[in-house]
Design a protein around this nucleic acid. Structure first.
Length: 586
RNA sequence: GUUCCCGUGGCCUAAUGGAUAAGGCACUGGCCUCCGAAGCCAGUCAUGUGGGUUCGACUCCCACCGGGGACACCA
């Protein structure tokens, strides 16, 4: 925006610096923190501090330089006003021109507004990572929503994205489930709600296993049969794994997520064991079998002290572990795709595990290891800092939460939009409920624990997805009443009048999305988009309450209609990145 | 013991090292003959402690306090 003007500005600044013997470093530019006028600000403190001719304290000298520079910049094209204040140089744009340009950008781009052109190699994002034969609960939700949002942010920032899901399809938990099924549910088929049906069997299995030593022994024996390659058990395993995956698919569809590549744990077990043999031969791993496990003593190899610790790669009986499979999986990803980056969205408790895995790969000379990145997010707890666990039964199932939230949303929709069909009401209620559930998972920083409680999860007021959706609905409603389509790309945005501060704030926010997308993708911070969407909705509501649109005279009416259309586009766009639907009515 | 993360009004959260620390919940009072009140307006209240770096620190560094996590055969 205003590239010519900025260049002219840079030239004047460069001359100014040269004349005074100041370092030529470009002047930093930032937003003016006061609302109501547009422009950019430049703090002159760094220049003042570096000035060899400085006399007196830095702030005073910064103000002196700002005034001198302001004098040189008077009358520069594209700027309505230049002022020096408290050591800052403030440059104000001429409002109508700026507004016009900003709205043209949004309306011309439409739903592509803010997205960058595609560039670079693909990025793989591994997320979800659930275990078969267990339920997906609210504790898993943050991962899925976070991962999905990261993918959409990266795509908007121009990166091709491959969505990967690493499924835990083997292990004792699976054996427990299979045995319990054979013993008490043989021949049964999954109920319509697959997840709940499988979850119930799993809970039952855990109960028997924990309370009955004889039962536990039977499960262990069953595990041995599995290990020996028992055909019958293998077949049952594959069949029930499919059921489980079908259940997951229902949930992913509900959440609007999909995956391009599913990796199964069972898929990398054998290659993991082979890799360990290689590591032993190369002297990286130490083989202590049969008394002791196969380990990599990273601290010993690296000369570090209690930093990388010891990794166990195989049990003393030769069976594989979590770490065994991580290594071949990491390599497989780079074999299958020319990845520019390989991101793991996995909770913070596995930080050491990923640090170790990456280091072992580096020791092996696996160059792409440096392109692996672990996004460690904090978990979702229940009040009282209770961690959700399907084993302990301290879980909130997504279905239960969604059903309750949808019901509550539907009551409100029915009250406000009685004319809509029941199906429409239900569809809207689902979108609102899902948004309300998703938003708290991404609106705070990934390093902060989310505490789930029913009351705030079902609250559709305040800083929440429904608030943002509502602003979108109102914008849509105005456009509909004006007889306009949603995109309204050919609206003449003529801002030849004195804009008020609510209009200015709103337009200013619209212009921020493109840069924000780039930054959010770079820093892997969905919370930036989430708070932005809320700020935008708030600014729109302020505008809505302050400025009449349909009843206004020209040129306000046309300009404000264009502004409503642009705001609607950007609200919908930011919601879409967050994976939240923007209903037309609610 | 080693190490990582968190600490901002009563509660929850925001703030690329930059000007007056921004919102939400809760509480109190007000606003629907006016584009949708899931909304808007008004009011009280905050950077754990002590040092340091810097022209300038919620932000960076050190120490401490408080909370949580990770650290050899779970994943």
């Amino acid at each position: 925006m205003f590239e010519n003007e900025k260049q002219a500005l840079n030239q004047v600044v460069a001359r100014f610096c040269e004349k005074r013997g100041l370092p030529a470093g470009k002047l930093e530019r930032r937003k003016i923190p006061f609302s109501g006028e547009w422009g950019m600000a430049a703090p002159l403190f760094p220049l003042a501090a570096a000035d060899p001719n400085k006399s007196g304290p830095v702030p005073a000298h910064a103000q002196f330089l700002a005034e001198a520079l302001a004098a040189e910049l008077q009358g520069l094209a594209g700027f309505a006003r230049v002022e020096a204040s408290k050591g800052y140089l403030n440059l104000y744009f001429s409002s109508s021109e700026y507004a016009q340009k900003a709205l043209e950008d949004v309306l011309a781009a439409g739903s592509a507004y803010g997205s960058q052109p595609q560039s670079g190699g693909p990025v793989m994002v591994e997320y979800s990572n659930v275990n078969t034969h267990k339920p997906i609960h609210v504790g898993h939700l943050r991962n899925v929503i976070l991962g999905g949002t990261i993918c959409r942010m990266l795509e908007a920032a121009g990166h091709p994205v491959i969505r990967a899901n690493y499924i835990g399809d083997i292990g004792l938990h699976v054996i427990k489930w299979l045995y319990n099924y054979e013993r008490f549910h043989a021949g049964e088929k999954p109920a319509a709600d697959i997840m709940r049906w499988m979850s119930d069997i799993y809970t039952e299995a855990e109960r028997h296993f924990a309370s009955d030593p004889a039962y536990e022994a039977e499960v262990r024996a069953y595990f041995n049969r599995w290990d020996a390659g028992d055909e019958e058990i293998r077949a049952l395993w594959l069949k029930t794994r499919d059921w489980s995956m079908a259940g997951f698919e229902q949930t992913y569809q509900l959440l609007g997520e999909h995956f391009d590549r599913i990796y199964f744990e069972s898929e990398v077990e054998d290659s993991g064991k082979l890799l360990v043999e290689d590591l032993i031969e190369r002297g990286i791993a130490e083989d202590g079998r049969p008394e002791n496990p196969v380990i990599v003593d990273l601290d010993k190899l690296l000369g570090t002290k209690e930093e990388y610790r010891v990794v166990v790669l195989l049990r003393s009986d030769g069976t594989s572990l979590y770490a065994t499979k991580e290594l071949p999986l990491a390599m497989l990803k780079f074999e299958e795709y020319p990845l520019e980056q390989s991101i793991y969205v996995v909770d913070v408790r596995q930080t050491l595990h990923f640090k170790q895995a990456k280091k072992i790969l580096e020791l092996m000379g696996f160059e792409p290891a440096q392109r692996m990145q672990h996004l460690a997010y904090e978990i979702v707890n229940l009040p009282g800092n209770v961690t959700m666990s399907s084993r302990d039964g301290t879980v909130v199932l997504l279905d239960d939460l969604l059903r309750e939230a949808s019901q509550r949303a539907q009551n409100i929709v029915a009250e406000k939009n009685a004319a809509l069909s029941l199906e429409q009401q239900q569809e809207i209620a689902r979108e609102v409920a899902l948004g309300a559930i998703k938003y708290p998972m991404i609106s705070r920083e990934t390093t902060k624990v989310v505490t789930f409680d029913w009351e705030s999860a079902l609250d559709f007021n305040g800083q929440s997805a429904p608030y943002i959706q509502y602003a979108h609905v109102r914008a849509n409603s105005i456009l509909r009443k004006a007889g306009l389509g949603l995109e309204a790309a050919d609206l003449p945005a003529n801002f030849a009048y004195e804009l008020n501060s609510s209009e200015i704030n709103l337009i200013e926010l619209l212009t921020e999305l493109p840069d924000l997308i780039v930054r959010a993708a770079k820093e892997l911070k969905p919370s930036l988009i989430a708070t932005y969407a809320y700020d935008l909705a708030k600014a729109f509501n302020d505008f809505y309450n302050t400025c009449p649109v349909l009843g206004a005279e020209e040129p306000q009416r046309g300009a404000r209609l264009a502004l409503v259309a642009a705001a609607r586009i950007v609200l919908e766009k930011s919601l879409r990145i967050l994976g939240i639907d923007a209903p037309q009515e609610m």
